[in-house]
Design a binder for these strands. Structure first.
Length: 565
RNA sequence: CGGGGCGUGGCGCAGCCUGGUAGCGCGCCUGCUUUGGGAGCAGGAGGCCGCCGGUUCGAAUCCGGCCGCCCCGACCA
């Protein structure tokens, strides 16, 4: 591709609205342009990178038996009503009516379509298992786009779906994807950590997210330094140490004026926050009051609480009136004497005797609070939010926290969708079952951005060879005043191109400085310079973009290497 | 949705406070010179100052409303 013809432009200045390196560089180097908030065009260079990422994914999914297909972007709303998600999903799903006044949606994902196809096509266990996938545009009306290509509203995603006869089959398909994802991200040059994650609106029995550690990441990861444990903080377990053997003491009320926070309470009584109990109050989407009790030195993890309480429609903080209506006092609250509320006690708090907790009377707390003696929890489960330095739930070493960007995810869906859509198959013994599904996603643009995050320097992008839009960038210097340069560069370009290998060729009438700067900004793995100087030295100067190593090599040798792919 | 910031030529910005009819750098076009690290000289093109309304003799500038974009938070396969 001749740069003189390429539809692109480089920018000398950073765009004002770009914060992240990937955003800055992809715009400056002419790979992408923004059209609206969270909506981007891929220019020819960016599109080629996306295609190369796509090809890596395609190869690895084909290798585990995946079959590529394509499913529609626009779905009838009825399909989503059948799965129950039409009402479950909020305004992030775009909805519209077609000319016949029929409700339609822009698909955020394709579980429904796969389940619908399975319903039509699969009759027998002999047809299973199946892995299908496609690369398709998604539109999700995110509340806030951010970080350039990191969180956008319209994007191309690879989504694959496994359909198996039973849970054991799902486990195999899930494991196949897990391993394929490892290989994919390895080939893309992304260092990922697979973390256990929340299943969210998908339901299902298990999920992992493949995360790239990055300070701009939107998720917080809990990582064991020895690699024994990695989880999204949303679901990260908090270890419960063995009982101390401390005997429960008699509860006693103590006046604690003006201590509505754990910090003021601990200071007033001169006890560590870890010897207090914190009550937090929420209301579920269907109007139930949930009282969560964690140790005072922890925060409530709302995801874990919401899952434990099976909160329909999520949780919102309760109002003071709602708390008082259940017999509790904001700022001095505990489940002692409470009524009409689901009490969820954190496992660590349950294992911590003699805490200071609210007396449900303004200005008073209770010393030596102990469950179930002083109140009866409906549930005793882990609902505390993991902190840096907490012991790893596997090995006990202190965990660290890091921010991460989710570059891929895998979900065990189970039979929710096939059940809802009424897809069944006949087993060997003639019994009828719902196929078991899994779903697996990778966002292409986000991966492109993460690759740039991981592979750039102060001069520009440094593409890994696996995804570079072109393997090499040929720069002709002084071609318009030295016919030998023009002839050598044109000849090299023509013969390499004729061999079937496309490279970038800077044939523009620009100064050497501009050409070198652009070549480094654009980031092809190899920069080949042909100039009077290089010819005098015996050929073309070859620069490795990543290492900066340079050498002058005979034209024929460079040509052979490029043509050889 | 809450908080903050920003909207002036393709890009980056100044001008706004204190109203008087728009400027700088880069880029772009033409010519000459230059040619291994974002060249020089000369000439030139290009702006509904986000939109609507108001105040005023006069608005990029002051006032009101709206729209858009970015960041933090809320939210989130």
């Amino acid at each position: 591709m001749r740069l003189s013809r390429l539809f692109f432009t480089t920018l000398r200045d950073d765009p004002a609205d770009a914060d992240m390196a990937s955003h800055r560089l992809l715009v400056r180097a002419g790979y992408v342009r923004q059209l609206g908030s969270g909506i981007y065009s891929l220019l020819p260079l960016g599109f080629r990178v996306q295609q190369r990422i796509e090809q890596v994914i395609r190869e690895e999914l084909d290798a585990i038996g995946g079959q590529e297909m394509e499913m529609p972007v626009v779905h009838p709303a009825d399909l989503w009503r059948q799965s129950g998600r039409y009402d479950k999903i909020g305004p992030e799903m775009a909805r519209f009516k077609d000319r016949g006044e029929r409700d339609m949606v822009l698909a955020m994902t394709h579980e429904e379509v796969v389940a619908d196809l399975v319903r039509d096509i699969v009759n027998s266990y002999r047809q299973l298992p199946i892995i299908v996938y496609h690369f398709q545009t998604k539109f999700r009306d995110e509340p806030r786009a951010r970080g350039g290509l990191i969180r956008v509203r319209e994007f191309v995603m690879k989504d694959s779906y496994s359909v198996d006869a039973d849970e054991a089959g799902l486990d195999r398909s899930y494991q196949l994807h897990y391993e394929a994802y490892r290989r994919i991200f390895e080939r893309l040059g992304l260092a990922t950590v697979a973390v256990g994650s929340d299943v969210g609106i998908m339901g299902g029995s298990g999920a992992h997210e493949f995360m790239v550690v990055n300070p701009h990441g939107e998720d917080t990861l809990v990582l064991c330094p020895s690699g024994d444990y990695a989880a999204n903080q949303q679901v990260a377990r908090v270890a419960v140490p063995p009982p101390t053997g401390e005997e429960p003491l008699a509860a006693e009320e103590v006046a604690t004026p003006g201590t509505e926070t754990i910090a003021t309470l601990a200071a007033f009584l001169d006890v560590p926050a870890s010897r207090t109990a914190k009550a937090a109050f929420f209301v579920t989407g269907d109007g139930r009051l949930v009282t969560a009790v964690v140790r005072g030195d922890f925060e409530v993890n709302e995801t874990k609480l919401s899952n434990a309480a099976k909160a329909v429609g999520g949780l919102r903080p309760a109002t003071a009136e709602e708390i008082r209506a259940a017999g509790m006092e904001p700022g001095y609250g505990s489940p002692v004497g409470a009524h009409d509320t689901l009490v969820v006690l954190d496992a660590l708090a349950a294992a911590s005797p003699n805490l200071v907790g609210g007396a449900n009377r303004p200005g008073f707390h209770l010393r030596n609070l102990n469950a179930p003696r002083d109140f009866s929890p409906d549930l005793t489960v882990d609902i505390a939010n993991a902190r840096a330095g907490d012991p790893c739930p596997e090995c006990g070493a202190p965990v660290t926290l890091a921010q991460g960007i989710e570059v891929g995810n895998i979900f065990k869906l189970g039979t929710d969708f096939t059940r809802a859509l009424g897809a069944t198959y006949l087993a060997e013994d003639g019994s009828r079952h719902h196929p078991v599904m899994g779903s697996y996603g990778i966002g292409l643009g986000r991966n492109m951005a993460c690759i740039v995050e991981a592979h750039h320097d102060e001069k520009g992008i440094v593409w890994p060879a696996s995804v570079a839009p072109y393997p090499a960038h040929l720069v002709a210097i002084g071609a318009n005043r030295d016919p030998a340069v023009a002839e050598a560069a044109e000849g090299l370009y023509k013969r390499v191109t004729d061999s079937g290998v496309e490279i970038l060729y800077d044939d523009r009438d620009e100064s050497p400085g501009v050409k070198f700067t652009d070549a480094e900004l654009l980031g092809m793995p190899m920069i080949v310079t042909v100039s009077p100087r290089s010819l005098a030295a015996g050929g073309a100067e070859v620069t490795d973009r990543a290492s900066g190593d340079r050498s002058v090599r005979p034209l024929a040798e460079v040509e052979a290497e490029l043509a050889g792919g």
